[in-house]
Design a protein around this nucleic acid. Structure first.
Lengths: 120, 120
DNA sequence: GCAATATCTCAATCATTGTTGAAATATAGA
DNA sequence: TCTATATTTCAACAATGATTGAGATATTGC
């Protein structure tokens, strides 16, 4: 169960343009992930800078990495993301349908249209 | 539907100890909200400093305020919080049960035990 | 109107974060 | 081993964020 300290770290990590884009790109890429170089091109940021942000996200438990040949492959830490969603919901859904009803609907929409890109 | 820019602002707002505690206190307080002075005492922060953080949260669309007598009452913007949850889920639940299954379970736990304090 | 309470704005300061280029590390192939 | 490729670490600087105290604004009751 995610605590307040971890949640702050995770939110802070996501509260930056480049880092949010990195996470979204990695989530979209799935478990296969993306090499750091590819990611740098996609996000439009220098290798040095990307490395800095990747470390931040890694410390926050939102991404993970593995080496493959001379590339380092980064991928989303789905468990970490899931924990964060749960943390938000734990606080916000306490008997307040106006909060969790739309969340459920969004979830249902995702589940019912698996082929659609949800953020086109 | 929340965009990337708004999401970054919301995450950045939550990625700070005092602000996360403010939001949690306001969510727990419900629609009635809390006066700024009460909140300052609860969080343990000076009035000036609290005011700064409240403005940040307000700009991010996570809280709202109304005047009542000589107090300003702050309350959680449940719609904004809901939008943020949806943003996270939209990105993360794309055909990945390992992400959204625990989220649903957390939600179910909240719904089944309405009297329990979810973060005791 | 005056004094008391509650909150906010402003300017200054200090700490943290983001960015960059140069040098270091790790891997693969000739 | 030497070279090329991929990524990270380091030191510096610029930009942003957090905190504080003093003064300004708004509201209530006398």
């Amino acid at each position: 169960m995610m605590g307040e300290r971890q949640a702050v770290a995770a939110f802070a990590a996501l509260g930056q343009d480049h880092r949010l884009r990195i996470v979204r790109a990695l989530v979209t890429a799935g478990p296969d992930g993306l090499a750091a170089g590819v990611l740098a091109g996609e996000i439009g940021v220098s290798g040095t800078n990307l490395s800095f942000h990747l470390k931040e996200l890694s410390h926050a438990g939102l991404i993970q990495s593995r080496r493959e040949g001379r590339s380092v492959i980064y991928s989303a830490a789905f468990q970490g993301l899931s924990d964060l969603i749960q943390f938000l919901m734990r606080d916000c859904c306490q008997g307040r349908p106006e909060v969790w009803t739309p969340a459920i609907e969004a979830l249902a929409a995702c589940l019912c249209t698996p082929g659609d890109t949800a953020h086109a």
